[in-house]
């Protein structure tokens, strides 16, 4: 019993629970543990997974980004429209990445330089950018002209679709950045105590701008892949993505008060959300219940985290 307690409440408690949940679902849900379903599962979490990488940095530095869903929709739109207009996929991609980066930069600059609360700033840009996506498309889906664009999502490398590779690569890159770079450590320091970090010589404003700019860029990557998968630019795509990404991060032990984050935790958080959705689809449970279950999972995870930290005598 003591062993079980230590296992569940230890640093890797979430991972243990994930493994148990995975095993249970594999046994009880038919056709869950098949190659086809696994690839489907991973593909379904690509957008959340990619956005969660940078959302983690945002939360770890005690900030918030609500505009990610809108940026994903908008950049997907831009990628499709620009490549349709120019006849070049490359130009479309560059335009989308540039737009995402720009929106992120604007977020960061307003938050860092004009000292406006991140929640308010991104609440505003979330609506502005969604508005831009709707205006530019007149509220309708825009189909892709060049079938080459589909290949982004359809192409495979060693049997695994490219988007999954990109997500895994981003997990590795941002995990490395968080743990092994000055940027990552400074992110945690800012989250832990912004004023002390500033007085210790950390460029807090600069860091904030970078974090949001990279967030914008990464959202653009997610937006392009999403557009390619759904074969069109959809102005209403990725609604609610911001909350899913934040949920995944919180599930993964990222503290909303800043200063605490781990890439492995976020990956597990993303997968837990993915598995829950996937298993419910396989069991033919109505989609409406999925909201309920996701909320409950989030609550349970946070409670567990709370029990864990008080159990260890930390405050």
């Amino acid at each position: 019993m003591a062993f079980l307690k230590r296992l569940l409440l230890g640093e890797q408690g979430l991972l243990v629970i994930f493994v148990i949940a995975f095993a249970v679902v594999s046994v009880f849900v038919p056709s869950f543990l098949t190659e086809r379903n696994m690839l489907g599962l991973f593909q379904s979490v690509v957008t959340i997974g990619i956005v969660s990488c940078t959302m983690m940095f945002c939360l770890a530095s005690r900030d918030f980004d609500l505009s990610v869903g809108s940026i994903v929709a908008f950049t997907g739109m831009v990628a499709v429209m620009a490549s349709n207009a120019s006849g070049s996929i490359v130009i479309g991609l560059i335009a989308a990445l540039a737009c995402g980066t720009f929106v992120g930069f604007v977020n960061g600059a307003i938050i860092a330089k004009l000292k406006i609360n991140a929640l308010i700033t991104t609440l505003a840009t979330m609506q502005i950018v969604r508005g831009l996506a709707l205006i530019s498309s007149d509220g309708r889906a825009v189909g892709i002209n060049d079938p080459g664009f589909y290949q982004l999502a359809l192409s495979r490398f060693i049997g695994i679709p490219t988007p999954i590779w990109i997500m895994v690569a981003l997990f590795c890159v941002f995990g490395f950045v968080l743990n092994r770079s000055v940027f990552g450590r400074n992110t945690l320091a800012i989250g832990g105590n912004p004023e002390a970090s500033r007085l210790a010589g950390v460029n807090v404003d600069g860091m904030r701008i970078w974090i949001f700019t990279i967030q914008g860029l990464v959202c653009a990557v997610a937006g392009i892949l999403l557009a390619s998968r759904i074969t069109s630019g959809q102005p209403n795509a990725a609604t609610g993505l911001e909350l899913s990404a934040i949920s995944a991060c919180v599930l993964g032990g990222v503290s909303l008060a800043g200063g605490r984050a781990a890439m492995t935790g976020v990956i597990v958080g993303v997968l837990i959300l993915g598995i829950a959705e996937n298993a419910m689809n396989l069991l033919n449970i109505q989609a409406f219940y999925q909201y309920l279950v996701r909320g409950l999972i989030l609550l349970l995870a946070v409670l567990l985290d709370n029990v864990r930290s008080t159990g260890l005598g930390r405050k």
């Binding site: 092994r180 770079s181 000055v182 450590r185 945690l188 320091a189 832990g192 004023e195 210790a200 503290s255």
Partner: peptide, 27 residues
């Protein structure tokens, strides 16, 4: 204004000086 809560003793010591021995921003 001093300590960065949540970070370790070691992190608090090297928070500023680490830029001297972190080529390309890598720790």
């Amino acid at each position: 204004d001093g300590i960065v809560q949540g970070l370790s003793v070691a992190e608090n010591i090297v928070i500023s000086a680490r830029r001297h021995f972190s080529p390309f921003g890598l720790l």
